[in-house]
Design a protein around this nucleic acid. Structure first.
Lengths: 183, 183
DNA sequence: ACATACATGTAAATAGTTACATGATTTC
DNA sequence: GAAATCATGTAACTATTTACATGTATGT
């Protein structure tokens, strides 16, 4: 889903500046969507031209001024139309699994290091999600489900990786000795 | 990881044409990487210019001719260097979870439909991975791990989504009645 | 007759990231 | 004194997908 649509969605949850939207992405959606300033600000200006959002400029002292965006009825309509056509797709890309595919080409110490980093990353993500679900009783049912979904995946992956670490290392060492000392 | 690097990796497993490489992506790596012809062919030609791969043209009767690529020692070296620097990162993007985030805005029938499609997708992916692991005893330990990893994630997600479906639907219906008949 | 598999390639369009520019204020 | 937070924006670059062009052979 493109940044334009995602911005409309965030604004449906409440008025916000571009900076606020970026924070929302980081705090609430980072486990399944991402967007940078370089795509958020142009998206907001484009949506404004199209009448999908409006904004008011707010002066602040001791802080730079900000543009607070609101979704318009047209914007709401368009977002709903997009949602009604959207397919529930998912995509997963992993350099970790590329590394594992070629595990037999890596020095054993490096392989151990990679698995340990991955374990740490999975645990870190799990901790973040656990915290979101505990602290925020204000979460809507749908949002709570997205967090549970992330937790389920991370838990399963953490468990598998932990359980298989030693046996995987052994299997790869075995493949090395199989193919001989050469190479 | 870019298509160039991924092509070198595939060629390390054996000589192949661009068409073969595309099939490899579909058959063996589709659960964590993707590449289309539009990125594979240019990548192969670029790698060839750089001396990372060589190729021979093979005539076939009843089939179009093909260019069979082999990785060169430089290519092997470069791939290994890339692997040794690569971070074990992962990224997940989901339109399904975007849809779930805004579940309260969707008509209940549509919501049921989305969850059922997602359930079917997860089961379909799981079936594919189960088949790979059963049919291919030739898989290296590293590759087998990547398949197990995919299975673990899909199993956990399938179970969660199945178990939560009814309660989620109820919770969202409750939120609707909470906010009143208006809106 | 129509779709799929085989096979290679290009061009346009899409969409995004990264890095930079600017500058006050607050925290370490 | 350095780094982070607040705040908006642009430009260059990167990488990719989609659709097209071309053509034979096989399966339904």
């Amino acid at each position: 889903m493109d940044t334009n649509t995602l911005c409309l969605g965030v604004l449906l949850l409440g008025d916000a500046s571009g900076y606020d939207i970026k924070k929302m992405f980081e705090d609430s959606f980072s486990h399944f969507q991402a967007a940078s300033f370089g795509s958020i600000y142009p998206a907001l200006n484009k949506l404004s031209e199209q009448g999908m959002v409006s904004f008011r400029e707010e002066q602040q002292d001791k802080r730079p001024n900000k543009k607070v965006f609101s979704i318009t009825p047209s914007g709401r309509e368009q977002f709903l139309a997009t949602l009604s056509k959207a397919e529930p797709t998912e995509q997963y890309r992993s350099d970790f699994l590329v590394l594992m595919t070629f595990a037999h080409l890596l020095p054993p110490e490096r392989l151990v290091e990679i698995i340990d980093i991955q374990l740490k990353n999975l645990q870190g993500e799990l901790d973040i999600l656990d915290e979101i679900i505990q602290h925020c009783s204000t979460l809507s049912a749908g949002m709570r489900f997205t967090v549970e979904y992330g937790i389920a995946a991370n838990r399963a992956l953490l468990e598998l990786t932990r359980n298989r670490k030693q046996s995987l290392l052994r299997e790869i060492a075995l493949e090395h000795s199989h193919s001989g000392a050469a190479q």
